[in-house]
Design a protein around this nucleic acid. Structure first.
Lengths: 218, 218
DNA sequence: GTCTATACTACGATAGAC
DNA sequence: GTCTATCGTAGTATAGAC
């Protein structure tokens, strides 16, 4: 099911997230295909986040990567398999983008709130987090995709739980972040969007950045 | 654009939310069509919430109301117009379903949390709130629909703001509610779903139902 | 590895019978 | 008011040339 590797490699290549066999026994020592695959993943991620999964055809997805529609099936056996790969890619890169691992807890939490709860995040879904952008479609995704989402959620919670004090706090935080961007996007009034974002920013700051709440000083 | 009413009527009938003219000049004194319209609204709301908008064809929507696909266009000029009508209908009925207007603030907030943050809400989107069920698709909906969503949001915020103390608190609450159900649905592990719901329930209870926080006694 | 062409299905919407 | 039939388009996926 998985392609045999001729060169040793770091990550996992399992794109066989829900389907049976890989149709194309192409060797993996070809770097061209790997680069194109990466371009495909990023380009289609942007389109998917902007337009949604069901509403976007394969042609549109591939066009964004500079390829024709039929070329998809040299990489993935189906549109659904591409989604799974995009989710995996986005969810990992998104996490590292938002949690810098450097600086104090206070600093990195402030950073997270400022970035995630920004107007520009609301107004540019194609550049932002996958979760609010694909929201309900992910809640109907096949098991394999949902398992990836569980891992992503766990990554976030495991990161923030010790920093905030409990898993409950960390879970509450991520929920509020995703909900805020989602609700803000449901409005087309920037004033309303701002109100929604600011409500979250203010209350989360009160909760987690109040003096004495966190280990380090402000 | 709007059909002339031969009998006086209570509500507004404006389904012309984004389109030009009503194609069918049928009279509104026919109660059959009104009842069927209501059935259509409720049936398609359930299907839309379960399957999503783009992923569901007109045939499937009408079938749920016991009608053939073509019959839609005797009621609405397009699939999009049906969505607008469903959103209007759901958003108003959803609000009154969740805010009983009876009992103390403490009681009704407890009621809201118990209902909205329940496992059964997570596992039965077709019976639940429209917002997490159509989530991102609503964030891409046409202006008319988003204006309805603004009104719905405002209804909720205006209701809870005086009861919780501020608009900020009310806005924070609705955001957390929608986000919780959405994130819980992205998992297919009931244990994970429960963790997400409980984190929200617990923190929101701490925030808004702590002794002395609200006017009335517990 | 990618394209063009195409098979097949589904879609949204309209026309006309009843 | 509703159905059946149908038009035109767009969808996913495959086949075969290069």
């Amino acid at each position: 099911m998985n392609v045999r590797l001729q060169n040793p490699r770091q990550g996992s290549f399992s794109f066989d997230l829900e389907h049976g066999a890989e149709p194309d026994p192409m060797r993996y020592d070809d770097t061209h295909k790997q680069h194109t695959r990466q371009r495909l993943l990023q380009a289609s991620a942007a389109v998917l986040k902007a337009q949604g999964f069901s509403a976007t055809g394969v042609d549109r997805l591939m066009q964004a990567a500079g390829l024709s529609g039929g070329a998809l099936y040299a990489y993935y056996p189906s549109k659904n398999a591409l989604l799974a790969a995009v989710v995996e890619n986005e969810v990992l890169s998104g996490h590292s983008r938002l949690t810098p691992e450097r600086g104090s807890v206070t600093e990195s939490l402030r950073h997270l709130l400022r970035q995630y709860l920004s107007l520009s995040h609301v107004q540019h879904p194609e550049l932002g987090c996958l979760l609010p952008a694909l929201a309900a479609e992910l809640s109907r995704a096949p098991q394999d995709v949902q398992a990836l989402l569980d891992r992503a959620n766990e990554l976030f919670v495991a990161h923030w739980a010790p920093r905030l004090g409990s898993r409950t706090d960390a879970q509450f935080l991520i929920t509020q972040l995703v909900g805020s961007v989602l609700l803000a996007r449901m409005s087309n009034d920037p004033e309303r969007q701002r109100e929604i974002l600011n409500a979250s920013k203010q209350k989360l700051t009160d909760m987690f950045l109040a003096p004495g709440r966190l280990p380090e000083p402000v």
